[in-house]
Design a protein around this nucleic acid. Structure first.
Length: 108
DNA sequence: GAGATGACGGGCT
DNA sequence: AAGCCCGCCATCT
């Protein structure tokens, strides 16, 4: 069995360009619907240069998660990357999950 | 092996 | 509406 990390990355890599998903969704796709926190933990260790589109993973509020001490402006970078893919942020910096939300490979 | 941590989520105050 | 607390899970120290 690949570690939880590997599983999370594998799923994150499947997120279509221009779409986003939530930690809870990824956790569910991993077979652990309650491991949303662990998902964040896995992505946290992922370098911005990774081939994994971590920027497409946001919280259920439709906002980028404010990780502590984001001095490198990674949260801001995430927003830019998404807008660059066509994802739209509203006045509250929120994404319309009903429109850009990805519910998994089966949720075409 | 035990305790603390965190890019979450849902519920209650 | 915003803030606080509790529960869940994998990893780290």
């Amino acid at each position: 069995m690949a570690s939880f990390y590997e599983r999370v990355y594998a799923i994150t890599r499947q997120i279509p360009r221009g779409q986003v998903t939530t930690y809870g969704t990824i956790a569910a796709l991993c077979g652990q619907p309650l491991a949303s926190r662990a998902v964040g933990y896995a992505l946290r260790a992922l370098p911005p240069t990774s081939d994994v589109p971590w920027q497409r993973v946001i919280n259920k509020q439709g906002k980028v998660s404010p990780r502590g001490g984001h001095e490198r402006g990674e949260a801001a970078l995430q927003r830019v990357l998404l807008e660059r893919e066509g994802v739209v942020f509203d006045a509250d910096d929120r994404v319309d999950l009903g429109r850009f939300g990805w519910e998994g490979p089966a949720g075409s």
